[in-house]
Design a protein around this nucleic acid. Structure first.
Lengths: 182, 182
DNA sequence: ACCTGAACACCGTTCAAGT
DNA sequence: ACCTGAACACCGTTCAAGT
């Protein structure tokens, strides 16, 4: 990659992070280009779709989610508390930019999405946590990690979409009770 | 309302139902106006926002949801089966047009939304079902009907948003297990 | 090889002119 | 009182011209 290309790439990414934080992942791409000081064509060259741009920013959260999974597995807290914590952190990460959770819901089961691979990494992290619970004999039989991931992402999406400040915890408590062996 | 106005109103609504069925609730309003044979301004006069248009179409589902709630309460099926059925029907209704479930998630907690009132009606229907369960002593303590509504709408939204054909049943089973007294 | 920015297409929204 | 459709603003996308 040429030096000026790389500089533009980084500048666009940094600007996108700021704009997405301010107004969410559905902000105008044109504005990002303008504020990054590049032409719209340049943004396009580096990020052919909005999802490609979100995907590039997702790296951070994906890393954090993965390390949170390790922390969850390492703790010896009781299953419900451990799961609640894990889910809350997960949601915190994927709702960092408004609109992201909903995009993740869509990308999760769509191999054609640019975000698919990172969704898989997060899905793997979740699978590890759930299967760890299973090994401890605390998982309700028939619970599929993929569906847990969909459910929790759904909760994130609902909270993220809503204008009101929705508490995710009460919803997560229901989910946890549905997962942990009675 | 003048005769020609009423005719246009009905024509727009009928066309919107067709277009929303074909391509979801994010279809171009311009196309609806064109296919209804009216100018864009006419559509605007009758439905100032896209949500107002969706709201007008929501009447049917709202009615069905309400009568499904009565049916759920009347049945003497065991709690889990009754709930699963109720939730599945609920989701079936609100995902009739692609994109509707997500809009309902957003409107549910936003009194300023044109769809808010009908969301309330659906919320009331759900409350009746959940409280009926409580009267039978089968509700897990601390479960709030409003959160159940959010959760199930979230499941609907995830299924609706996804490109892949997601099974809602496994997710609903988790929710049901989290709701019914162990 | 990469960037620029004009040009295009599309869509929501408004409003002056018409009936 | 209501409708029409031109006009506007905004945004994503493309591409010819430039370095």
């Amino acid at each position: 990659m040429r030096a000026d290309a790389r500089r533009n790439y980084e500048k666009i990414l940094a600007t996108a992070r700021v704009v997405f934080t301010e107004r969410g992942t559905d902000s105008s791409l044109d504005e990002i280009a303008k504020r990054a000081g590049v032409g719209p064509g340049t943004l396009y060259r580096h990020f052919p779709t909005r999802e490609a741009l979100v995907d590039a920013l997702m790296q951070d959260w994906t890393d954090r989610v993965a390390s949170d999974a390790d922390a969850a597995i390492a703790t010896d807290a009781p299953a419900p508390a451990m799961l609640l914590d894990w889910f809350e952190h997960f949601i915190e990460h994927i709702t960092l930019h408004r609109g992201a959770a909903t995009k993740i819901c869509a990308a999760m089961d769509d191999p054609a999405s640019p975000m698919y691979r990172k969704c898989r990494v997060m899905g793997e992290a979740n699978r590890r946590v759930i299967e760890h619970l299973d090994e401890r004999g605390e998982l309700r039989p028939g619970v599929d990690p993929a569906n847990v991931m969909r459910l929790v992402s759904g909760v994130a999406s609902v909270a993220d979409t809503s204008r009101a400040a929705i508490e995710v915890r009460p919803m997560l408590e229901v989910v946890v009770d549905g997962i942990v062996r009675a």
